[in-house]
Structures are given as C-alpha cells and as structure tokens.
C-alpha cells in the first residue's frame, strides 16, 4: 500500500512538468498566471508563424532526414557484420560502435565546432548531419542487432538453394525479416535526432540551427508561453511515436532486455 502511494506520488512528480506545460500553453496573456484566466490559441499561432522556427523546422527536417537515411543502412550493415561477420571480438567492436553514446555532449559538440571551423563549414548543415549520424548510430545498431539475432539463417539458405542471387535473398528475405528492428531503429533515430540539443548548439549558427536550438534561444530571450505551445506539440508527437513503437515492438522487450 505504502509502495503503491509512493509510486503514484513519484509518477506524479515525473509527469507534473508535462501537465503544467500543456496547461500554460493555452494561457491568454504573455505574463503567466495559473490557473489561466482563459483559453487562447495565440501562442500556437505564434509558434507556427515565427520565422526563425520555420527556418529551424526546415533545418531539422533536412538534418534528421539526412542523418537517419545515412545511419539506417550503415547501422544495419554493422549489425549484420557483428552477428555474422565471424569477427574476432564482436563485443569490442560493438563497444566501439556504441561509444558515441557515453561521450558528454559538450565534449563532442566543442570537438565538432573546432573541426567545422577549420573546414569552413560552420554555416552548412553537413557537420550537423555528420554529428547526428554518429549520435543515432548506436540506437540503430542496437535495435537492428536484436532482430538479426532472432533471424533464422535457414530461411536465407533455403532461398539461396532455390536459385536466388545473394542480392535477391537480401532484399526479399533478410530485409523483410528484419522489419521490426528496422522500424524501431527508424523511430528511435528520428526521436533522438529531432531532440538532439547539446552537440547541435555548438555547431549551429543562425542559418543552420535546428528546432531545439532555436527553442533554447527563444527561452533565453522571451518569457511568453510560445515554447509551451511548441512543447505541447512535441509532447503529443512523442506520445504518438511511442504508441506506434509499442504497436510494432514490445517496449519492455527493448528496454528490459531479459524478457
């Protein structure tokens, strides 16, 4: 009973900020009051029409699409190699591929900043895409790897023995069997890239900044609830994505991997 109360209280603590953000996003005035004096959608209108957000949204789209389209094939190839490449130390290679996960964002960000500046690439999105590929790669490798482990090589052998070329086996047999892993990888990669902030802050300028960086700049400079509106949109989108993932792969299988 006490445990149950504690769990409920702690979950309330975890969800409280989300609830407040959603409530505040409908606040009619620039200076916040709680509970709000009325309901208004003006901050949603402001969030969607603010030019720097529009530009940042385009940048986010390009950077995330670029990073995910690169990381997905690269990560899938790596996952196949890890499981089937008869590597001498697959564990060590896996550690290498997952290592960007443990590097502090400011260290990676500053490193990329120095490299970008020396290449004269500060205003372009290329460095952002490169950094994002490295940052989402661990998630892709891990998600696809789970599917590869469950793959039965007999099915591929069967296709090959019936005369299919290796390429055809890969496209018609292997890829479809990897679909759950690929789908999870895609969604994780998108969520991680769309929300990436610290590394991107260091290598962003006014021209190429992505949405989280633009939101950060706005929070520092303005006090009105525009970010609450934008955050609410983010939260709703995130829940949709999580729900989708849960349809396709069992979340507890991914995160509590003993099951």
């Amino acid at each position: 009973m006490i445990l149950r109360l504690a769990v409920v209280a702690l979950l309330a603590f975890m969800t409280l900020p989300t609830v407040v953000v959603i409530a505040v996003s409908f606040n009619p005035t620039a200076i916040l009051s709680f509970p709000p004096a009325g309901l208004s959608l003006r901050w949603y209108a402001n969030a969607l029409t603010y030019p720097q957000f529009q530009r940042a949204a385009v940048n986010s789209l390009v950077v995330t699409a670029g990073a995910v389209l690169l990381a997905l094939p690269i990560g899938t190839a790596a996952a196949l190699a890890l499981e089937r490449g008869r590597l001498r130390a697959p564990g060590a290679w896996a550690t290498v591929l997952l290592s960007p996960l443990v590097v502090p964002g400011v260290a990676a960000g500053l490193g990329f900043l120095i490299v970008a500046a020396s290449l004269g690439l500060l205003q372009s999105r290329a460095v952002l895409v490169a950094a994002h590929v490295a940052l989402v790669l661990p998630f892709v490798v891990r998600s696809v790897w789970v599917s590869v482990t469950n793959l039965d090589p007999a099915l591929e052998r069967a296709a090959a023995s019936l005369g299919a070329t290796p390429a055809r086996v890969f496209v018609r047999v292997t890829l479809p069997l990897l679909r759950p892993g690929l789908f999870a990888a895609l969604l994780f990669a998108v969520v991680v890239s769309v929300n990436e902030f610290v590394v991107s802050l260091f290598i962003s300028t006014r021209v190429n900044e992505i949405l989280p960086v633009a939101m950060f700049t706005y929070v520092v400079n303005y006090t009105d609830p525009t970010i609450a509106a934008l955050s609410t949109l983010f939260i709703v989108a995130t829940f949709l994505v999580m729900w989708l993932v849960d349809r396709v792969v069992d979340l507890s299988a991914v995160f509590l991997h003993h099951r």
């Binding site: 390009v62 670029g66 205003q123 372009s124 999105r125 290329a126 895409v129 021209v207 190429n208």
Partner: peptide
Amino acid sequence: LLASAAVA
C-alpha cells in the same frame, strides 16, 4: 544537402 547550403 550541398545544394541547399549553396542557396543559403
């Protein structure tokens, strides 16, 4: 990517 950077 390169094209969009050049336009900017």
